[in-house]
Amino acid sequence: MAFPRAGVTLGETEAERAEGYAAWTAVAHAVAEFEPVSMLVDPSETARARAMLGDGITQLEAPVDEFWMRDHGPTFVIDDERPGALGAVDWIFNGWGAPDWAEWRLSAEHARTIAAHVGAELVSSVLVNEGGGIHVDGEGTVLLTETVQLDPRRNPFADRARVEAEMLRTLGAERAIWLSRGLTRDYDEFGTNGHIDIVATFPSPGRVLLHAQPDPAHPDHAVIPRLRAELAQAEDAAGRRLEVIDLPAPAQLRDAEGFVDYSYVNHLVVNGGVIACGFGDPHADDRARGTLADAYPGRRVVTVDARPLFARGGGIHCITQQQPALPRVDSGGLE
C-alpha cells in the first residue's frame, strides 16, 4: 500500500484529509489481521503514518504523489518453471491517461522501488497500463476493457493483438477476454476510463463475479446486460464457458458528484479472508458478504467502509497490491 499525502486526491479541507487518512489506515489494519502489510510513505508523512499505523505495519520511505498502489505499483508474477523466483511487472503509469489533475510522476517509480526492496526480478513493459485494468484467473486468462488498454491517451498505437502479446509476455496470459467498457462514473473527469476491477473478477477459474445494478434509474442498469452478454460469449484459456455470478450494487444511486460506481467487485482476497467494500447499506452489505463467502469458501469476509475511498476515485482493491508467497527452495528441493 501507499500512505496518503496532501494533494488533490486527499481533499481540500482538513476534514476531508482526515477522512482520507483514516480510510487508508482502516484498510491497512483490516488486512494486517490476516497477513503482513508494507506501506510506502512519503517523507512528509512519516510521523503521521507512524502514529496512525502503529508498529504492526512495515513502513518504507519513498516519494509518493498518487497512492493507488494497485495502479502504479508492480503486478507480481511467479514462474512455474522457477519456483523460487518472483517477478514484478512494471507497467508504464501515466496517471490514467495523463489528465491535467493527476499527480503521478513520483508514484510511477514505485514498481521499481518495490521490486528492488523485495528482491523481485523486474519485468519492464512498454504498455501503459494499471493493475486495476486487469484481472487474471491464474490459469492463463486475463480480463480487459477496450477503453483502458486501447485508450489513445495511454496507448495510441495499440490494438488488441499487441496488447494480448504483451499480456502473454508479462503475465503468461494465453487468452484475453475483452469487455467493451466499464461503469458509467468511471468515465467522469476523475475516472480511470473503465477499470475492470469495479466491473468483474475471477473468484476461481471458470467463474466470474459481475457487478449488477438492479435499479433502472441508474445508467449502469443498461450497461451491465451488455457486459454480461460479452462474458457469456467468451471462453477462458481452458476452453470453458464462464459461470457469471451477480454482485448487486447497494441501493444508493447518487452522491454529490452524480451517479455512484459503488461496487462490491472491488474487494481484496487475503490469506484466509476477503476484505470487502461496505457502503452503509446493511442489507446490500450483508448480501455481498454472503455472496463473497460462497465464492471464496473457507475465507472470512470482513467489511470496511469504502465510501471515503470511492469519493476519491477507487476502492479497497485499488489501494492494495498483493505479493504472492513463494515456496522455499533448498538443496533438497521445494519445501
Rank of each mutant, 00 (worst) to 15 (best):
A295E: 00
A288L: 07
V270K: 07
A306C: 04
R181D: 02
I275F: 05
P203W: 00
D188Q: 13
D281G: 08
P297H: 10
E243N: 06
L309I: 07
Q213E: 15
I196A: 05
P225N: 11
N271K: 15
H221I: 15
G278Q: 02
H211P: 13
A217V: 05
D261A: 15
G272I: 12
F190P: 00
L183V: 13
L292R: 03
A212V: 12
P282Y: 07
L209T: 01
V208P: 01
G194D: 01
R241E: 04
H211V: 14
P297G: 08
G258R: 11
A217S: 12
R287A: 15
P205Y: 15
E243G: 10
F190E: 10
A295D: 00
A306I: 00
H211T: 13
P248V: 11
V270R: 07
L227S: 07
D305S: 03
P214V: 09
V274S: 02
A293S: 10
A251C: 03
P250T: 10
I245P: 00
L231W: 09
T303F: 02
P205Q: 13
E174W: 07
R175C: 13
F202V: 05
R289D: 04
V260L: 10
H221P: 11
I245W: 01
P308T: 03
G194S: 05
H221Y: 15
V270P: 06
F279H: 06
L309N: 07
G273Y: 06
L231Y: 14
L210T: 11
P219E: 03
F259Q: 05
E230I: 14
L253Y: 06
F202D: 01
R300A: 13
A238W: 03
S204R: 14
Y296K: 01
L253A: 03
A256E: 12
L183N: 05
P225E: 06
A229L: 13
L183F: 06
R300K: 13
D281E: 01
R300Y: 07
I177D: 05
D197V: 10
A249P: 15
H267Q: 02
G278I: 02
D261P: 10
E174I: 09
H283K: 12
A200K: 07
P250A: 09
V265H: 05
T291V: 14
I245M: 01
V302Q: 07
G273S: 10
P205C: 14
A256W: 10
I245E: 05
A249E: 07
A276G: 04
G206I: 10
G206F: 14
Y264S: 02
A276N: 05
F279N: 01
F279L: 06
L309M: 13
A234I: 13
D197S: 05
H195R: 10
T192V: 03
I196E: 02
G191D: 06
E230W: 12
A229S: 14
G182V: 09
D281I: 08
A237L: 11
G258K: 11
G191M: 11
A238P: 00
D261M: 15
G290Y: 13
I224V: 15
Q233N: 14
A229D: 14
D294A: 13
L183D: 03
A232Y: 12
H267T: 00
R228T: 11
P308H: 04
A229I: 13
R254N: 00
C277R: 03
I224F: 13
D294Y: 02
V301W: 08
G182F: 04
V223Y: 04
V265Q: 00
I196Y: 02
P216W: 15
F259V: 07
E257A: 15
Y262K: 10
R226F: 06
